[in-house]
Design a protein around this nucleic acid. Sequence first.
DNA 1: CTGTTAGCGCTTTCAA
DNA 2: TTGAAAGCGCTAACAG
Lengths: 339, 339
Amino acid sequence: VRDVARHAGVSVATVSRVLAGGRVVAPATQAKVLQAVRELDYVVNAHARVLSGRPAPMIAIVATNVQSAFLLQVAAGVEEQAAESGRFCAIFATHGEERREAEAIKLMRELRAEAVILAGGVLDTPEYRERVGAYAQALGTRLVLLGRPALGAAALVVDYDNVGGAYAATSHLLSVGHRRIAALGCKEPFTNNELRLEGYRRALSDFGVELDPALTTSEHTTMDRPAGYLGVKRLLAAGVDFSAVFAINDVIATGAMAALREAGRDIPGDVSVVGFDNLPLAQELTPPLTTVHLPHEELGRAAVRMALDNPQPGSGRDHMMLGTHLVIRGSVQPLRQAA
Amino acid sequence: VRDVARHAGVSVATVSRVLAGGRVVAPATQAKVLQAVRELDYVVNAHARVLSGRPAPMIAIVATNVQSAFLLQVAAGVEEQAAESGRFCAIFATHGEERREAEAIKLMRELRAEAVILAGGVLDTPEYRERVGAYAQALGTRLVLLGRPALGAAALVVDYDNVGGAYAATSHLLSVGHRRIAALGCKEPFTNNELRLEGYRRALSDFGVELDPALTTSEHTTMDRPAGYLGVKRLLAAGVDFSAVFAINDVIATGAMAALREAGRDIPGDVSVVGFDNLPLAQELTPPLTTVHLPHEELGRAAVRMALDNPQPGSGRDHMMLGTHLVIRGSVQPLRQAA
DNA sequence: CTGTTAGCGCTTTCAA
DNA sequence: TTGAAAGCGCTAACAG
């Protein structure tokens, strides 16, 4: 296509200079080139450009699950910030399968992506650490871990305060009088799950409330709706007494509320519930759900900013933790003295 | 990096053959090459590959809005199908801005994407048609319009049955006795809005119910929550009588339900409501929303399948319309004779 | 079955 | 300020 750009009567080098930016070119020449480009509807070949040494303007986000509102919002943040930085965003859904994660990484290596962001909770196993360590090593580019356990200084990390959020949620319940607070999570030790439960325990302890193992249900293996639904069913069936529930995330809360309602318990009259994530659906529930807000979009933005900033390992700028806060809505009520 | 692959003692051509697939290579040689690749942790340069004639394994989806659950699900379908076809998915959010749409198209031209999918409702203006016509022309690749008005045979089209869905929803209401059915849409003539209203009118007409303009509210300019909330407020304030509402989409329905509840109207006791889209949130509402289900994910998959299939224009395979159906939940009740 | 060679389209020294 | 020429890493056509 470039021969054709000689339509302008200049050399390829000159054309490149005006198109690729920066360099000094006589305004007259520049105009001629631009004119020719327009006439021929010429489009540079980005691959050739990358091949000759430019970085590929691409940020990848590989998430465990693209259906979850949480990751979608993070992805939206990534897309935003990438666009603002003149990059585009490639997206991958792994569905938790290692194979797909590996494929995504491989592809991004081949494509020389500037950064790849791994997002979504995981099981923090030695295998996981080894695998991701290998990725970090292999990727010539920045690898950023978003909402996942860090790995020494091998990768960049953007995280949010799970423990603090859970602490705030639980404290809220405690401060309005609740003492028998069920915690609904899942069995598999996903990092999010563990961290949030940790916040729950810490709050209980600070309020001098003893932890009752019967109140923590985690029979289910996934962090989704059934975990909440079945969790409450089980609690009810076992005759466990509780006046509030802290759900590890909003969709679990949703399941819990459904089960509660089926059992004829009023929310928040009979039992208060608080969630975690502040998904869009939280405010549409009846009653609107009090939950912990996460800076979804900002997480995504921060991840790409950090990656492009390319901080020194150990500079302190290669790691950041965003805050969370409780948003009060209508699903919590002070404990009635009678109860 | 290839010189290094001569580590295997063969020529670059041979390496290419084993890596790029297809060609006949002696198993022994093949093994040597693979071995060398492993030892050197060699990764092909996808850009060089594209540059030398291969298609870029990339499908782009450019959507008006990445926050909407609808488009996200479509995007998920695109990602799925792309991955299954050995491609990856680039994602762009335009927020309805032409500039961003144009930028996305330009970038995908430069990157030689195999297909670009334009998704999301739009205003069907002459400018729109001209603009998209230009895209179709410019993109050497497949352009597919998803859920948008077609453009002659210039582009591929994947659509779903808006009219049929709205017809089904409205008929449902009519068949259980409702006659005063409010339609909540928006003022701007987004194509979805118009089509759904068309289905509404057609159902009314088939049931011999006269259309009352007072029942169609569309003061609001966007198809979102306030459109429903404000729409109902206005109806109520104007003292318009109605026993059911057909909302042009689920989030409008959500707003409508909120307004109804604030006014002390029971759903579905006093007024029935049906939505459109079947977003995940629909089943979490109280009561769960009866709504029209759209094949979100399948739309995305169909779009990439069609693009990769590369059908002849006018072959009949360059256009498809997916069906929709009503899913009955708890927000509709037969009209009480008393009312 | 395998090696040689000629580009793919762009950027970038190095000279002019 | 501009032109000529040398690659970037890969594939494919053509010989061996």
